[in-house]
Write a protein that binds this DNA or RNA. Structure first.
Length: 318
DNA sequence: AATGTTCTCAACCGCAGAGGT
DNA sequence: TACCTCTGCGGTTGAGAACAT
């Protein structure tokens, strides 16, 4: 004996609501309120299930609802709250007047989640992928570590492949790879080649995992910053094992981090510092001007993997 | 212009908890 | 206490729109 259905499904209409139905429901609720959803469709003359009426009202017809684009402030609120609360959409929506949990959930799933992934940030933990890899690596005994890239690849491959292939990024190998790097001479199977390169990138990230990532106050969290924040986060930094985690050092200003915007700015300036020929002072990096005039950091030598401009990060491949 | 692919978001589903009897 | 009903929540789906080829 299961519970009885909320309505006779054979006799109810489903799918998109018509303006007439909206009007009937709104008029009825304006007069009688929203008590007893089971009776509302019957009394309002609607061939709809009570649940469907409730959803239509709460997600669309309520007069206090805000329709249209989410503002930057709203997005920042969602990301910040999500880093603390997880998928508690109703709680998050309660902090955004006029937005429903459905709105917030949809916006997260279609925009914000992809945007974070595109920046190399895990949308579940709000930590950079490289940080997650290093955390996993520290829990494994040395013999297991070589297999970590393979395992991590299973988690991140799709996002990375999406990013890499969707943007039609051509890998550029300005110099020789080190001994264990994948060969680029045969691009017959582009995807497999890409996978190999990702594996290599992950292994590079792991290589730096014994560095102290907690130099700036411990756990990471995420939020958008007024002066760029995530947008300044260069995906290729995931591979930069020279200066530790840029995330912890300069980009983390969420609830559990203490790094200030000033430090962040200084370090960003440091990163952007160029020599007279336009190249970064950091070895292995080369800043080039791209298709639309924005700058792109190309990693050569043993860091060559990604070509992602700052604009790409602001507007990831979605 | 036609076709295929991807994205968006309204709507649906099933489950869990609250409250009433 | 046990059962029933209602409501709210989060995950998922699918139609239509937008975009790419």
């Amino acid at each position: 004996m299961g519970r009885i259905p909320c309505c006779e499904k054979d006799n109810v209409k489903r799918g998109q609501w018509t303006p007439e139905e909206d009007h009937k429901l709104s008029s009825y609720i304006a007069q009688h309120g929203t008590r007893n959803w089971r009776l509302i469709p019957k009394n309002a003359g609607l061939q709809r299930c009570g649940k469907s009426c409730r959803l239509r009202w709460t997600n669309y017809l309520r007069p206090d609802l805000k329709h249209g684009q989410f503002s930057e402030a709203e997005e920042q609120t969602i990301v910040t709250l999500h880093s603390v609360l997880g998928n508690r959409w109703s709680v998050i929506a309660a902090q955004l007047p006029g937005r429903t949990d459905n709105d917030v959930k949809n916006h997260w799933n279609t925009k914000l989640k992809k945007r974070l992934s595109g920046m190399g940030i895990d949308p579940v933990t709000h930590k950079p992928f490289s940080h997650l890899i290093s955390e996993i690596a520290t829990t494994l005994s040395p013999p297991q570590v070589p297999h970590l890239a393979e395992a991590a690849l299973g988690c991140f491959k799709d996002e990375m492949l999406h990013l890499l292939t969707k943007k039609r990024i051509g890998f550029q190998f300005h110099q020789q790879f080190p001994n264990n790097a994948p060969s680029t001479s045969h691009v017959k199977n582009e995807e497999n080649d890409t996978v190999e390169k990702i594996k290599y990138g992950l292994s590079r990230a792991i290589k730096g995992s014994d560095k102290n990532w907690e130099t700036n106050g411990g756990a990471t969290s995420s939020s958008f910053h007024d002066n760029g924040g995530y947008s300044n986060y260069n995906f290729a930094n995931l591979l930069n094992d020279e200066d530790g985690s840029p995330w912890n050092q300069s980009l983390c200003s969420g609830s559990t981090c203490t790094a200030g915007g000033e430090l962040q700015q200084q370090q960003q300036q440091q990163r952007n510092k160029k020599t007279s020929n336009g190249n970064c002072e950091d070895s292995g990096k080369e800043v080039v001007t791209t298709r639309n005039g924005s700058t792109t950091t190309m990693f050569n030598s043993d860091c060559v993997l990604w070509d992602i401009s700052s604009d790409d990060l602001m507007n990831p491949m979605v």
